[in-house]
Design a binder for these strands. Structure first.
Lengths: 204, 204, 204, 204
DNA sequence: TATGAATGAGTATTCATTCAT
DNA sequence: GATGAATGAATACTCATTCAT
């Protein structure tokens, strides 16, 4: 096993344990035991326990950055139907969180409660999500698709909280249930609830 | 200072510190130092550190229970305008969280990330909020005020996440800012966003 | 309740708890709770926890002193049959220990293991018992009733250990059993085992 | 120093301190200081303080088990002279206790006073010693060597208490004295005291 | 690189004792 | 005398981190 693989292995194990037991209730002992490596090996690849956790958060942030930037540019928001665009954003968000339920759990459940240096990373993630929604809304207003009188700060927080909570509810809490979640249908229903409140479109 | 007051004093100090630094980063030493009492005194009133935290969560839950049960009964939901009722609920929720920003911070920020026995209390709080929204929606459907085709599970989570996130955003994150939050206005705007997506009312 | 009675009450309660749980596992809290008095009250009557225990040991020692000195003097040892005398001593010892099984338990079970100042008191008790047996044996030798070649140091220890162990076995360990112990019979049997080994008497 | 040696080292140091100061008056601090190791090292080898003590008691029990089972079987008791056999048992017991005076001190002095889980181990040791004596006596009765009318329960306790007390007296209390104890002579004298009271042999 | 024994600062908790009321 | 809230020194135990092999 080369260095890259070993580092990845440790991260995988740590992610599983952090997700299950939280940062403080996960010991280095648990990680080395689960990974079946020596205590010292962890410190060959990470400065300390914080570093492992921060690495996980950071890589999550990078993946999120990449995911939300995919296939969307200023052109498309002008050409496609704004409600379709909204639905697409919602679906993409849900798809992303579904992709890594353990990180989803870590970020959604314990993100806010983290002290130390993690708080900064979490704020960065939050800020990024928030800004994205904000810019979408502001673009929509300029394009005449979104109600001019909308309180964008409020709405951005509304959507932020709503989407993350749904992701948590369907992908973490209801994890054990048999029936797979139909994300397409979910995205449609979320859009339906918000459409008339946000967009300047004829009532269906 | 009698027993009741001393216990209350410890809880106040602990609440402030837990809110600021989280459960794990708050030491008994910090509490006794901030309260200017002896180490042992804490243990005259609480079994252990867990007990202090659980007492805070529990009392928060009890207050919330009382707050949401006030002035609303099955009659009123039939007589008052459903949208006004919704706005009222939103306002009450925000007023409640604004009333104790430290507990608001504790519950909203670190609630989910808590392991141990606290998880059970948090789940109870969440469940209670969720059920309240659910029952409101179901009553509305039966009364013909809420869209029949609404996915209530989804919408309850949507509203849950949205409201708590807004409370966190305006009462915890922006705490330092000068301008006081106009809760009445906020409640109106939240209602406006959700109204057409949830209720069977003529578009304004 | 006057001062004398209150002190006695505390001693009784403490004795019961020390006997049941040992010195270290008995807390002042346990004592005040069982006696239904305030914490501070204990310290009106005793200097500290040690003082309570030492008082118990000391009073036990005094009672023992008195008991063994009763009805025996140098005359009687010359006139009565030496074996009868031995049997009488054995019986008196057993009767004494049976009289206060809790102190019996404390002295026999935890006596040796005690550190601190108690060790001195225990040594005093042991020494007193040991010396008594020694002097009996030496008197017997001078009177020609006890074998001249007997190792009195060894025999005194033999008898000491044997008697205390029997007291412990029949009065503490077997405490719960229905059938009362027949001390008269016991004393006879103990005497029978030791008689020929110790005394210069014709074999029966 | 490998793991086995380190564990042994800690046990040795702990044994010395427990023997000197008792269980409750021996602190982990004392142990790590005496062993010149770090506080945490103790917990690499033992679950907690109880575990160290229990390990000592248990290993003592195991050694005793092995010692008493050596070289004696049902055959020998029938062929060798019963009094010689008795003397042999006494000598072996004394030799065993002399071999580890610190454990001797722990078991004989503080054994009975121990609460917690140690009580169970101590009872096991006591029971084992008691049963051994009992079975010897019963075998002797069946072989016609021991008086038929002997109260075996009483006698077993008599011998148990007597032997342990002698071991304590000669190996713990008089430890400092110059003249070494002549165990052979001691065993002979003990036998002489009990011989006529226990065995059916012509009076010498 | 990998190991895992050793480290020791840090933390919660206990409990005998005091003292103002 | 009686009370019991307050005290704080003492103690067991944890766990991230180091470093010689």
């Amino acid at each position: 096993m080369n260095a890259e693989e070993r580092k990845k292995q440790i991260l995988e194990v740590a992610k599983r344990l952090f997700s299950k037991n939280g940062y403080y209730e996960t010991q280095i002992s648990d990680i080395v035991e689960a990974a079946d490596i020596a205590r010292g090996t962890v410190y060959q690849y990470f400065k300390n326990k914080d570093d492992i956790f921060a690495t996980l958060l950071d890589s999550f942030y990078r993946q999120w950055e990449q995911a939300v930037s995919q296939g969307i540019n200023e052109i498309s928001i002008r050409t496609i139907d704004p409600v379709d665009y909204f639905r697409h954003r919602v679906r993409m968000t849900l798809v992303f969180f579904e992709g890594d339920r353990e990180m989803c759990n870590i970020v959604l459940r314990m993100g806010h409660g983290l002290q130390r240096d993690f708080e900064a990373i979490m704020k960065k993630i939050e800020k990024r999500i928030y800004n994205l929604i904000m810019s979408d809304l502001e673009l929509g207003i300029r394009a005449g698709n979104v109600r001019r009188d909308l309180n964008v700060e409020l709405t951005a927080n509304l959507l932020d909280g709503a989407l993350l909570h749904i992701a948590y509810h369907y992908f973490v809490n209801k994890k054990g249930e048999k029936a797979a979640v139909d994300i397409e249908k979910l995205a449609g229903e979320v859009t339906a609830v918000f459409r008339d409140g946000i967009f300047c479109v004829p009532k269906q």
